[in-house]
C-alpha cells in the first residue's frame, strides 16, 4: 500500500526535493557565477563598468574572444597590495577576538537561561531576541550616540566619578568590539542555549552518583554535550563578522579598515567592480573552511539529535 502512495505522489516528491536546489541555484549559484566572472574581468568606463562583455551574436569567435580577455590580474593586485592584506588580517583578527568575547559572555548567559525555571525560559529567549525588533542600523546609530564624546557612557562614567574627562570611545577598535558583541550575542546565545536546554538533568545526577563533583561534571558532561551548540554559535558569529561592514564603518576609526570596508570602497568609490569581486571571491575562499566545518557539525548534530 505504501508503494502506491509513493508512486502517486512521485512528481510532488520530486518537486519538494527540487525546490531547495532551485533556491540554491537562483540565489546562490547564479550570483556567485556572476561575481566570479566579474572578478576575472577588467575595470572599464562603460556600462556595465567592466570588460569583456560577452557578445552572443559573434558566435564561436565571440566566445573565444571573451574567454581570451579574462585574466587573474585582479587577484594578483590584491595579493600584491598591502592595504588589502592588512584588511584581511584585520578582519580575521576582529572576528577571532570578538568570537572569543562572545563565547565568554554568551556561554554563561545561555547556561543561566537553561538552568532557570522552565516556565521562565520562553520569556528569557524572547528577551534575547527582542533587540531584533529594532532595525540593525538604528541600533548601531544608537551606539554612536552612547559612545560619542558627549554620549551616555561618558556622562555616566563622569557622574560616577570613574573618569575625570570624557574618553574617546568612538572611532576605536573598542567601539567595534562593543558593537559586534552587542549585535551578534543572540547568534551565540541561542545555539548554546538550545544545546544546554536539551541536556538531561539525570545525566548530571548520574555523574554525581558515579563520584563526580558538580564542577567536574560540568567539564566531563555538560561541556562536551554543549559543544555542538558552542561550535555552531562560534561559526554563526565568526563567519559574518569577517565580512562585517556597517559596524566598523560607523563605530570604527579611519585607522582600521576591515575587508568589508575595502570592498565597499572599491565598489562604490572607485567603481572598480572587478577588483571588488576579486576581494569577495578571496573572502569566500577564506570562509570556506569554517563554513564546511559548520555544515559538518550541523549534519552530525541532526543525525544524533533524532536518537537522543
Amino acid at each position: 500500500m505504501s508503494a502506491r502512495i509513493t508512486h502517486r505522489s512521485g512528481w510532488a516528491r520530486r518537486l519538494v526535493v527540487l525546490a531547495p536546489y532551485l533556491w540554491m541555484a537562483v540565489f546562490f549559484a547564479i550570483p556567485f557565477l556572476i561575481v566570479l566572472r566579474m572578478s576575472v574581468s577588467q575595470n572599464a568606463i562603460a556600462s556595465p563598468p567592466y570588460i569583456p562583455v560577452f557578445d552572443p551574436s559573434a558566435g564561436f569567435e565571440g566566445i573565444k574572444a571573451f574567454v581570451g580577455a579574462l585574466s587573474f590580474g585582479n587577484f594578483r593586485n590584491v595579493f600584491s597590495d598591502q592595504i588589502y592584506i592588512y584588511a584581511y588580517l584585520k578582519s580575521l583578527e576582529v572576528a577571532l577576538l570578538s568570537t572569543t568575547l562572545l563565547l565568554l559572555i554568551g556561554f554563561p548567559i545561555a547556561y543561566g537561561m537553561a538552568r532557570s525555571p522552565r516556565a521562565l525560559q520562553p520569556l528569557l529567549v524572547m528577551a534575547v531576541i527582542l533587540p531584533f525588533w529594532t532595525a540593525f542600523l538604528i541600533r548601531i546609530y544608537a551606539w554612536v550616540n552612547i559612545l560619542q564624546r558627549e554620549g551616555l557612557l561618558n556622562d555616566a562614567l563622569l557622574a560616577l566619578k570613574l573618569i575625570n574627562e570624557p574618553v574617546a570611545w568612538l572611532a576605536s577598535d573598542t567601539a567595534i568590539y562593543i558593537g559586534i558583541v552587542y549585535s551578534y550575542l543572540p547568534f551565540m546565545v541561542l545555539p548554546i542555549y538550545s544545546a544546554l536546554e536539551r541536556l538531561d538533568e539525570s545525566l548530571l545526577e548520574a555523574a554525581a552518583d558515579l563520584g563526580c563533583p558538580r564542577w567536574k561534571a560540568f567539564w566531563l558532561v555538560t561541556l562536551p554535550l554543549a559543544l555542538p551548540g558552542v561550535v555552531a554559535g562560534a561559526l554563526l558569529c565568526f563567519i559574518p563578522v569577517v565580512g562585517e561592514f556597517v559596524i566598523p564603518d560607523l563605530l570604527g576609526g579611519s585607522a582600521t579598515m576591515m575587508i568589508g570596508q575595502a570592498l565597499w570602497v572599491d565598489f562604490f568609490s572607485n567603481l572598480d567592480w572587478p577588483a571588488a569581486s576579486a576581494l569577495a571571491i578571496i573572502l569566500l575562499a577564506l570562509l570556506l573552511v569554517p563554513i564546511v566545518l559548520y555544515q559538518h557539525m550541523q549534519a552530525r548534530t541532526l543525525e544524533r539529535g533524532s536518537r537522543w
Binding site: 545526577e205 548520574a206 563520584g211
Partner: peptide, 17 residues
C-alpha cells in the same frame, strides 16, 4: 552524592551520549 558508597541505576538509564 559523589562521596556516598551507593550507586544507582536510573529509570532512563542516563547513559552519557
Amino acid at each position: 552524592p559523589y562521596r556516598r558508597p551507593v550507586n544507582m541505576m536510573f529509570q532512563s538509564y542516563a547513559l552519557f551520549p
